[in-house]
Amino acid sequence: MSPNPVRDVSADREPLPAPSSPTTAGPKRLRFRQPVWWLFAYIPAVVPAAIVIAIAATLLEASHLHNFGAAFFGLTFNSSTNQFGMLVFIVGSLLTAIPALLLSMGIGLGIAIASTTYLPRYLARILDPFVDLLAGIPSVVYGIWAFVVVAPIFGLVLNPWAVEHLSFVPGFAGNSLSPTTAGYGLPISIFVLTLMALPITTLLIRDALQSIPKDLWESGLALGATRWEVVRRVSLRQGSRGIWSAAFLGFGRAMGETVAVAMVIGSTAKLPTNVYDVTYTMASFMFETLDAAYGNSLYLSALAELALVLLAITFAVNLVGRRLVAHIYAEQVAGL
């Protein structure tokens, strides 16, 4: 009997899977007959996880946690006596990131409400891309602009005004030791960080407000509420998850920002004594001092530990923030 010239394709196929109930139908996954295909399919797919693990493992290996514990969370930083207390930088990061986050959340809320509620749609469509464009400007370009253009404004106008008029507020009274006239220090760092966190917070809040069902909006208006009252009592409550995620992701961005802050923070390893003072943040300190640490193994290990702490903070913050908006795995968010 001559073999059938038409190849029997049914032998190549896997048997059909048992029909699943329509309610549990997810995207169907492919299976492979030959194990070699697994290599091509599964190994590239886990690349991001592998990179994350590699980064954490490398930093752990580089630090060996030689300097951890009380020495790490000390206030004294002096490389000539091998005292690497890193609390100054953690405090500096928080002192810049938290005010910047609050400011950018406030401005972001305002912009998002204006764009979704008050502006005519054609105007919102023209103006919204400008906010998104803020995310595209590189950090180092922000830095040089802030250093040359904005720092004199802070040093010659805003800081002296605040010293004169706000000195009754604790911390706002300047002293001769702090370089208020140069303009570098906490206020301009907060300004730059606010600008850099603004696109994330605005985008996520806008997304949250836009995803609220039209019915809720209309029923609110029909009950006699003004637009503002509907926004405050309906939209902001319904969209609270998105707004919280904006806060978390914006905080992660502000904590991790490196170069722009390094250019304007003043780069001095001390706790600020007033609100105009120079200090350091974790990221900018790590960036500027890696060269100096070369050859000193304890110094390098202390820096790697600081990197691990920053990594842990940004991981935790990003994890919570992303979980809150897990349903929007959208291309817009992918851009941030």
């Binding site: 991001p48 990179i51 994350v52 980064i55 930093l59 950090s139 992701l249 992660g252 961005r253 904590m255 991790g256 920002e257 490196t258 170069v259 990221a283 790590m286 960036f287 990197a307 920053l310 990594l311 940004t314 991981f315 990003n318 992303r322 992918a334 941030l336």
Partner: peptide
């Protein structure tokens, strides 16, 4: 990874 600070 996308949210990781560049310095890290």
């Amino acid at each position: 990874l996308a949210g990781m600070p560049s310095v890290i």
